[in-house]
Design a binder for these strands. Sequence first.
DNA 1: AATGAATGAGGGTTCATTCAT
DNA 2: GATGAATGAACCCTCATTCAT
Lengths: 195, 195, 195, 195
Amino acid sequence: MKKNRPKYRQIIDAAVIAIAENGYHHAQVAKIAKHAGVADGTIYLYFKNKEDILISLFQEKMGSFVEKIEEKIEGKETAAEKLLMMIETHFNMLSEDRHLAIVTQLELRQSNKDLRHKINEVLKGYLSLVEKILKDGKESGEFSPTLDIRLARQMIFGTMDETVTTWVMNDQKYDLTALAESVHQLLLNGCTARS
Amino acid sequence: MKKNRPKYRQIIDAAVIAIAENGYHHAQVAKIAKHAGVADGTIYLYFKNKEDILISLFQEKMGSFVEKIEEKIEGKETAAEKLLMMIETHFNMLSEDRHLAIVTQLELRQSNKDLRHKINEVLKGYLSLVEKILKDGKESGEFSPTLDIRLARQMIFGTMDETVTTWVMNDQKYDLTALAESVHQLLLNGCTARS
Amino acid sequence: MKKNRPKYRQIIDAAVIAIAENGYHHAQVAKIAKHAGVADGTIYLYFKNKEDILISLFQEKMGSFVEKIEEKIEGKETAAEKLLMMIETHFNMLSEDRHLAIVTQLELRQSNKDLRHKINEVLKGYLSLVEKILKDGKESGEFSPTLDIRLARQMIFGTMDETVTTWVMNDQKYDLTALAESVHQLLLNGCTARS
Amino acid sequence: MKKNRPKYRQIIDAAVIAIAENGYHHAQVAKIAKHAGVADGTIYLYFKNKEDILISLFQEKMGSFVEKIEEKIEGKETAAEKLLMMIETHFNMLSEDRHLAIVTQLELRQSNKDLRHKINEVLKGYLSLVEKILKDGKESGEFSPTLDIRLARQMIFGTMDETVTTWVMNDQKYDLTALAESVHQLLLNGCTARS
DNA sequence: AATGAATGAGGGTTCATTCAT
DNA sequence: GATGAATGAACCCTCATTCAT
């Protein structure tokens, strides 16, 4: 299996750095190859084409993203706690990998529609996770029984995304993780049933 | 003034269509010119370069966007009503111009970082409007006195954006405007003070 | 006659300045028109095309060049004196019109082969003048009876040209006219019969 | 080293032919590539851009030019003999490469001022060679002790250049090398001390 | 498996010239 | 005669991908 050979990850990590440093459109395959310490042609032994690098990049990174979050929220009792943990973990992981944050929030969005549809496929795993939390909260009575799961998911995801993007566009110069609790409060308010 | 001559708008409208149909990266200047019914060179009598078309496009469309919303919410009393009207108008305007929706939600985001920073400048007008509503609501007591205006604005904007993008990615096959009220309710919940 | 209307010369003088300031390839017709204070289209009422401006420019300037030199050498007795006067006048006229010097020595040579052939046609008047002096000197016994008129003309013209070009390439920062006498002495040596 | 790979010279030789045949401004990179039997993009593996081809062309050709002349005059005793050998070799080498003659005398002069300044840098090697001969001749007493080296160099260079250019403009239809001796006599006269 | 030299398609922009007013 | 808005042909260079070694 190609994915288990060391060069596979080398190339993906090189791609993250190359894109973060040069921008999506200036991250030529040659530059990625140089960063990875392999020849240009070697890239094509591991990936079908350039797009495939990006999709794989997203899959790998988002995969571990979701796994990590799932781990973290496992022990939590309430939906509210799970939501908080998700937001905190999400913010925290991107805070700790500046390059990845730039790539996911800014650069990868410059890809064309096709690629973005594929990226969305990958995102579905994350979205399901969010919807799972919402469903749990609804069932437990924490959230409003009339809560529209899809809309709420869009609110949660859209808010987190906008918050992270704003932070990246401001050159990551403030503490993103510190915002987690406030964002959580806002979103919780949105989902909670009124007395 | 160039902006008042008919070809200026012709070209911008042609750009919207060309980008929506072909995607940002395949909307060649030649295609835009053909759509506008002018020669390639004519484009450069009205715009400095291709990027300038896109920035102008965004300014023109977003400008009338904000104006329209301002008009609409003028008569409204409460912040909640203003918020609802804003969401409805936002959703409605994009519903009525399918091409523009594709361009703003998908294609224009493929532009490079520089262009996106310029687009963000234009967006600030809209963001101010949102913050104005939030401030009003806070002062009138409708919203929580501890509401973080910036975070709330990111929630509102992020949620609307995510909702519209999801709709566009689903080929605009359901009624976006119909979602306005539910989205409003969610966001209002998020902002409102608890008893 | 077009050549007698004021705009004809206006445009030619504008061309000299535009070319000297911007270089041959950046002296667009539009720039020449602006310098001349006329509309782009007006140029084409006086000249067939851009090349025609340049040929006419050369004809006008070189014409008065040759006339002036002819006047100056008329009173001179010996071929040597005529040669000196020619060199002095040549150097002096280009010293006094910095723009024209740049245009004739550097910029106009960037024209294509066709244009240069036409320019050469114009130059023939000057070359005849040189050959006339040489013939006179040969007949009077000042110059060697075996002197090859054509080669001697090429030496004289080539030397003057190289001297002026070197001066222009050095930003005209020394006194060109002061070199006339030394150049004259060199060339005279070349042409004079040995005892 | 790129300069030693065969395609480097292939491309330069192709450029000489393409420029001689089509003129400087119509010698598109595509045409040069076709002549060289390589793909357009290959050009850019060996040269930074089109201008770089031209500068390299001049350097290569002028370099071997100067080397050849240096070799040839090495054995010569007197400055007069060296001068003759230089003129003969200069005329002969351009006679034997019709394309190169067209390119150096006509086409390359159409380049812009920047390129011409770079070409002049390359020419300095040749000019030094001429000045060396002049200095030797002055010291040995062959040339006038009052000879202005720079002016004499301009005469020699200007005369040779004008002679070759006239020959090229006349479609190389007479024997250039046959003129060497007469030109030499003229120039020698110019430099020699009078009794 | 790995290399890296070679490929060649594709597009933004300039500017001489025209022509309706 | 004069205008100047409009035209559209022409070209350098980049970079993802291939394939002989």
